[in-house]
């Protein structure tokens, strides 16, 4: 299974979209990229409000969520170092009924939405890479939707943990139970049960919101096919043409 790639010396290049740019093109864009720290719960954009920035995460994980009128939240997708938060802007709109916030703290490169629009108008390498990334993102959203319908809470949780593990590039990260419930669309009791069973089986350790991946291989075995499909699609999109 191909995992997402992390770890070059230039932090921007931990992001696969930026890393896929030809060097000269990346250098040209650099003045428009600002490295920012994202903290848990930080709102990137709200529902139906103009999007000011797009983000290329290095090791942060951000979520796009659908918010219901009664306050309930359901994850639509997560974005990490494989992509860019702000495909709405890329696709020509300035707002979306979805909201986005940081789910795992970390760093990202930020670009003004107006700068991205100007880049897209030039039809250059960034445009082509983002088209491919958007295909990968669509597959990720579709596959995750199918996974949530067809697979067990344990398999879904394993997929989600593996994807987060790839994106943060370290074995330990923090995540509250409420987040996991929202991300997986599960009840608190179910998440608690799944986390306990994974812990008993030696796959993870979960203490006071701190998740440690203990046995990644076993986690991959516990997971359904969806993780592999999503990784393969992102890998294919970024393969050298």
């Amino acid at each position: 299974m191909e995992a997402y790639v992390t770890g070059p010396s230039d932090p921007n290049l931990a992001n696969r979209v930026l890393a896929a740019l030809p060097h000269a093109e990346y250098e040209r864009l650099l003045p428009r990229l600002k490295t920012v720290s994202l903290i848990v719960k930080q709102v990137m954009y709200e529902q139906n409000t103009p999007i000011k920035y797009v983000y290329f995460p290095f090791n942060a994980v951000v979520s796009e969520v659908a918010k219901m009128k009664n306050g309930q939240i359901s994850e639509v997708t997560t974005i990490g170092n494989e992509g860019m938060l702000g495909t709405t802007v890329f696709l020509g709109s300035d707002r979306t009924p979805l909201a986005a916030f940081a789910q795992v703290a970390g760093q990202a490169a930020r670009m003004k939405a107006s700068d991205l629009r100007a880049e897209i108008a030039q039809d250059g390498p960034l445009m082509k890479i983002l088209l491919r990334y958007t295909q990968g993102l669509m597959v990720q959203i579709a596959q995750s939707g199918a996974c949530n319908q067809l697979h067990s809470p344990k398999q879904r949780c394993a997929r989600w943990l593996l994807m987060t593990h790839d994106r943060v590039g370290r074995d330990e990260f923090v995540l509250t139970q409420e987040f996991l419930c929202q991300m997986l669309g599960l009840r608190r009791a179910t998440v608690s049960e799944v986390a306990s069973s994974m812990q008993r089986a030696g796959l993870i350790r979960y203490t006071r919101g701190r998740i440690s991946i203990i046995d990644r291989h076993a986690l991959e075995t516990a997971c359904c096919e969806c993780y592999g499909v999503i990784c393969a699609e992102h890998g294919r999109m970024f393969a050298k043409k």
Partner: peptide, 16 residues
């Protein structure tokens, strides 16, 4: 004790 920033510390304290 939670070895994290205040944002996470708030959320985890509420959890507990």
């Amino acid at each position: 004790a939670l070895k994290e920033d205040y944002a996470f510390a708030l959320l985890q304290t509420l959890e507990e």
